[in-house]
Design a protein around this nucleic acid. Structure first.
Lengths: 346, 346
DNA sequence: TTTCAGCACTCAGCGCGCGCGAGTGCTAAC
DNA sequence: GTTAGCACTCGCGCGCGCTGAGTGCTGAAA
C-alpha cells in the first residue's frame, strides 16, 4: 500500500475512473461498477481496499457509511491536473463557435456572444466581462450637445471598446469641440487611468488661469465623462437557467442566481481567480470562499486578450461534476479565437 | 341566491376577501378563517354556501374535495377590476424609487435601473425594454474610423437613446465625415424608419451617378450603421432569482428562467400585451398563451413615454398571487416619473 | 326565505414500521 | 498482493392508519 497522502499508479487510475463515472452518472460510485469497467479486471474487494486508502488521503467521501464514494474537491483538483494538456474540439462545437462569433468586430460584442456560446456548449453558465477600459489605450473622445442641458460623451479605446453616457451639463457645442480636440490631441494613446490622473493634475495646476477650456474640462471630468469604472453593461451572464438542473437545494439555488445577477460580484470573482498575466485556461475548484453558496461549483476561465493587451475574461461556471475536458477545450479555443479575430483588423 | 354567472354584493365582498387572504397566505382558504375575518360576522356555513356559488360561477377552485378554495384566473381578473383606481405609494417605496432614479439623464439608463427598482419593490421580476428606436427621431449620427478596417458608428436620437456599433469597413475619415454631414443635414428630426427608407430610395435613384458620397452611404447602410432592429442590450431583466420562491415545479421554473434569458421573447411579450397607445397600467393575468410555462403568472406593466412619444415599456412579472395594489401603484408611479424626468431636460 | 348548527364524509399530510438492496469493512484463504 | 465470503449498515420506497382541516347537506330557528 502506498503511504498515506501519496498516490501510486494503481490509485491514480482508480481515482480517475471514479471521478469520470461520477461526472457521467452523478451518483456515488461503488466498487462493483468500477470493477466491471476496469480493464485490468480487478475484483471489487481489491478496489475497495484502494478506495479506503483514497478516502484516508482525502480524495473520496461517503454520504453515509454504506453508500458509494463521491470525489472531494481535492479529487477534482488532482483529476484536472492529470487531464490538462490534451485538447480536441468536437466538430459540432467548432461549428457553433464559428457560426456565432464569425463577423464580430468589437470586443464587447464578441464577449457578449461568447457568454451565450459558452453556456450553450457547456450546458452551464457562461460569463464574460470586458475589462473596465482603465488599462486600455485611448483612441479618441467625442462630445455632443443633445438637448437643453444634456451632453453625450463617447469614449473609444484603441481596442475598439466603445462607451457612451449622457451627462447633465450645459456647455455649448463649440466649447465641447474644443475640449474634445484638447483631449484627443494631448492624450491619444494614453491609458485611461494615466489620462485621468494627468488631466486632474493639469486642472489643479492651471486653476488660476481658468479659461473656458479648463472650465469645460473640469465639468466634464467631474460628471464622469472620462470615467472608467466597470460598467454594468460590460458583464455578460448567460445560461443561468442551467443551474436549476445542477443544484437541488432551493435556498442555495436562489442565492446563486442572485449572485449572478450582481454584475459587480461576477467581476470580482473573475478578477480574484483569473490571473490575467497567465495565458492558459485556469480551473478553480470550489468557489466557496468568494461565494458561500457556490461551494461545489467550479470556474473554468481564461483571459481574453488581443496581442499582449488584456481586454477581459471569459469563463464557465458549473458544478464540480462538469465535463472538464470539454469545457476547458472550448474556453481555450474561444480565448485564442478572440485574439485572432480582433487582431486581424488592427 | 344570485343567478349563476352574476355577482351580488355579498358575493363580491367574500370573493375579494378570499383573493386577498390567498395572496397574503398562499394557502387555500377555508370558510372558517373567512368567517372570523368577516366583519359582518357571517357563520362558516353561510360562507360555504356563497363559496359554492362562486365555484359554480368559475371564480374558485379546489385542489381536492376537502380543501379550501383557491381563486381562479377569472377571480383575479375580477379582483383587479375592483381595486383599480385607488393609488397610494408607501414612503419607503417612494424613497427607493427616487434614490435609484434621480439624476438619470438618458432613457436607456433609466429603464435599466427601472428593472432593478421594480424587482426590488415587488420582490419579483422587473423588466424594461427600450423601444427599438425605429420610431424615434434622429438627432444625429457620427462616424469614426477606428483601426485598419473598422468604423465606429454612433446614432443618437432626440430622446437621448444612443446606440453604437463597430463595422468592418474601409472608408477614409474625410469620406465618413461627408457621409455623416449628409445624413445630419438631410435627416435630422426624421424617424429612423423614415430615414432609412428615404435613404434607400435615394441610393437607388442616384445609383447612376455613383459618386464617393453615395458609395460610402451605401456601404454604411448595408453594414447596418443606421439599423434600428431591437438591440439585445436594450432589454433589461432583473430579479429572476425571485422566481425560485414563487414556482415550486422545477421543470417550469427552468423553462421560465430560460424564457427570461431570451431577450427577444420578452420584447414580444410586452409588445403583445401592452397597448402602448394607452397610458394606464395594464394587468394581464395568465401568460400561458404567450409562454406555456407561465400560466399562473401575471404581467403588470405600462408604456414608458416622454410626452406623446413611446420610448419603451416597463413591467413586473410575478405569480398570480402578487400584491396587485402595491405593484400597480409602483409601475404607474415610475411610468409617470419617466415622463417627468426625461422631459424636463429637453 | 335566509341563516346557521350539527353531522357525516373526504382526503392530504405525517409518522411509523418494515423489507429491499446497494455497498461497505473485515477476515481468511489462495 | 489479491480475492471470495460474510455480516453489517443504512437510505429509500411502500403501505398503513391516524389526524385535522374543510366540505356538502339537512333540518331547525329567525
Amino acid at each position: 500500500m502506498a503511504p498515506p497522502g501519496t498516490i501510486g499508479n494503481r490509485e491514480r487510475e482508480i481515482l480517475t475512473a471514479i471521478v469520470e463515472t461520477f461526472i457521467a452518472t452523478g451518483e456515488p460510485v461503488g466498487s462493483r461498477v468500477l470493477s466491471r469497467s476496469n480493464r485490468e479486471g480487478l475484483s471489487p474487494a481489491t478496489i475497495r481496499n484502494v478506495m479506503a486508502d483514497l478516502s484516508d488521503a482525502g480524495f473520496l467521501e461517503q454520504t453515509h457509511t454504506s453508500s458509494g464514494r463521491v470525489p472531494t474537491t481535492e479529487a477534482y483538483r488532482y483529476y484536472v491536473e492529470q487531464i490538462s494538456g490534451e485538447t480536441h474540439l468536437s466538430a459540432g462545437d467548432e461549428n457553433i463557435i464559428r457560426e456565432s462569433l464569425a463577423g464580430t468586430t468589437d470586443a464587447s460584442e464578441f464577449l457578449e456572444r461568447t457568454s451565450r456560446v459558452l453556456s450553450l456548449i457547456s450546458k452551464n453558465v457562461g460569463v464574460a466581462v470586458a475589462v473596465p477600459g482603465a488599462k486600455n489605450a485611448l483612441e479618441h473622445v467625442y462630445f455632443s450637445r443633445l438637448g437643453d442641458q444634456k451632453v453625450l460623451a463617447v469614449v473609444v479605446t484603441k481596442s475598439g471598446l466603445v462607451r457612451d453616457r449622457v451627462l447633465r451639463l450645459d456647455i455649448s457645442q463649440p466649447d465641447l469641440d474644443v475640449a474634445a480636440r484638447y483631449i484627443n490631441e494631448n492624450f491619444r494613446g494614453w491609458t485611461m487611468t494615466d489620462m485621468r490622473s494627468e488631466l486632474q493634475r493639469r486642472l489643479e495646476a492651471e486653476r488660476s488661469e481658468y479659461d473656458q477650456l479648463m472650465k469645460s474640462l473640469e465639468q466634464l471630468y467631474k460628471q464622469g465623462a472620462l470615467a472608467a469604472e466597470p460598467d454594468a453593461q460590460t458583464v455578460f451572464v448567460e445560461g443561468a437557467s442551467n443551474l436549476v438542473a445542477n443544484e437541488q437545494d432551493r435556498q442555495r439555488l436562489q442565492e446563486m442566481l442572485k449572485t449572478l445577477e450582481e454584475k459587480g460580484k461576477i467581476v470580482q470573482l473573475l478578477e480574484a481567480y483569473l490571473d490575467v498575466k497567465q495565458e492558459a485556461v485556469r480551473v478553480v475548484i470550489g468557489l466557496d470562499d468568494a461565494v458561500p453558496s457556490m461551494s461545489n461549483f467550479v470556474l473554468i476561465g481564461a483571459p481574453a486578450r488581443v496581442g499582449s493587451e488584456v481586454m477581459g475574461s471569459l469563463a464557465v461556471i458549473g458544478p464540480t461534476r462538469i465535463d472538464y475536458q470539454h469545457t476547458m477545450t472550448a474556453v481555450s479555443y474561444i480565448a485564442r479565437l478572440f485574439d485572432k479575430i480582433l487582431n486581424e483588423s488592427e
